[in-house]
Write a protein that binds this DNA or RNA. Structure first.
Lengths: 197, 197
DNA sequence: GTGTCAGGTGAACACTCGTTCTTGGACGGC
DNA sequence: GCCGTCCAAGAACGAGTGTTCACCTGACAC
């Protein structure tokens, strides 16, 4: 008596979505294949028709997130404008993207340690490419003398940590709305590189 | 034939130290009582002579860390000096403390979600007290007009996230030494609140 | 109608998990 | 010498882990 077996539309995407949410909430190690299956409404064994292992599921989630993040960032920041404009666009993008996709981004920054060597090898270049774009902007501003930074690599990491931290406290319906929060981060980032308009 | 049974000096501290390191490396869920016991050189069952449960071990670690952090911060920052001086002292302290105790601090910021309600109830007030001190400093600087901040609560969280991020990349023997890194963070933090000396 | 097949099921595998319990040796106080 | 305390060992508990496998079923192509 297996009724709804054929009413499923896209089990693979359902698995991705529920796994993303559960991993973000309890951590990779804290979620079992049975938990994920139960959330989707199938049995644990059926997951293996879509993903060869739990680890592959995690890597799939993290890689696709990083690719989307990278593409979206490049589209949002562009290549024209001053260093200050690009930095503002970058900060604005990073904060709003992280507000809109808190689970994905939380996962990407927290579960690197749950990745095996092959998974890490897939993620690290994508992260580096993302960081490299910010580094480019900071370097351009420093070269032009509009930014004052003590150490470029350190400031790049400091800015990313500062912006990503938005996921920890931001809640829809809280004291600040998306735009106000993003604006405050943009202003803080611009000040942090010593930009005086 | 249990030879070394009595040669143990302080098993409880050994447990704390090894558990701290293992939790920081693999996450709370990723470490078993057997792992911890093996690291210390005893059997799993002997752990329960010192801690009533794995959860209590985690709470012990996190609470004692937060208490030490809070005490050390208050000693380092003091209560005299201008807002800028206090902020510089705070940033300097936070970075060097996190560089020196990376496991403790990583744990404290990552494993809140592994805490049960009673553990969370013990930690949250300590975290709040720590944040509150930084908030005090920022507010004083903003009141005096030497700091320009878009939103005090947001900037407090932004600064903490930025500074805590040092644990992700800093390695002893790397390109930057402790003092250089801490100095760069101090400069970046002061700029981020719009302080112009 | 019949064959193919993606995608379900349920049972089972071999572990590992946190925790409990009984046992026994070493030790300081009396 | 004896006793209570501390703290270790080792076996066992029931439950949960990721994964595999044989089997079944509904939908679609021809």
């Amino acid at each position: 008596m297996t009724f709804t077996q054929t009413t499923r539309i896209n089990t693979k995407d359902d698995l991705r979505n529920h796994a993303r949410q559960l991993f973000a909430e309890h951590g990779y190690e804290g979620v079992s294949m049975r938990d994920i299956a139960a959330a989707v409404g199938i049995r644990q064994s059926a997951i293996y028709n879509h993903f060869p292992s739990k680890q592959h599921l995690l890597v799939d989630l993290m890689v696709s997130h990083m690719e989307q993040l990278l593409d979206a960032m490049r589209a949002a920041v562009g290549t024209s404008g001053t260093a200050a404009e690009q930095l503002a666009a970058f900060a604005q993008f990073h904060v709003t993207y992280h507000i809109d996709q808190p689970e994905d981004t939380f996962l990407a920054y927290m579960e690197l340690r749950s990745l095996g060597p092959e998974g890490r090898a897939a993620i690290v270049p994508l992260r580096n490419a993302y960081e490299a774009r910010l580094r480019q902007i900071i370097e351009a501003g420093a070269r032009d003398g509009v930014f004052k930074v003590a150490d470029v690599a350190l400031v790049v990491r400091a800015i990313l940590a500062m912006l990503t931290g938005v996921t920890v406290w931001f809640r829809d319906g809280g004291r600040l709305d998306r735009e106000t929060a993003a604006g405050a981060y943009v202003a803080t980032v611009l000040q942090s590189v010593g930009y005086a308009p």
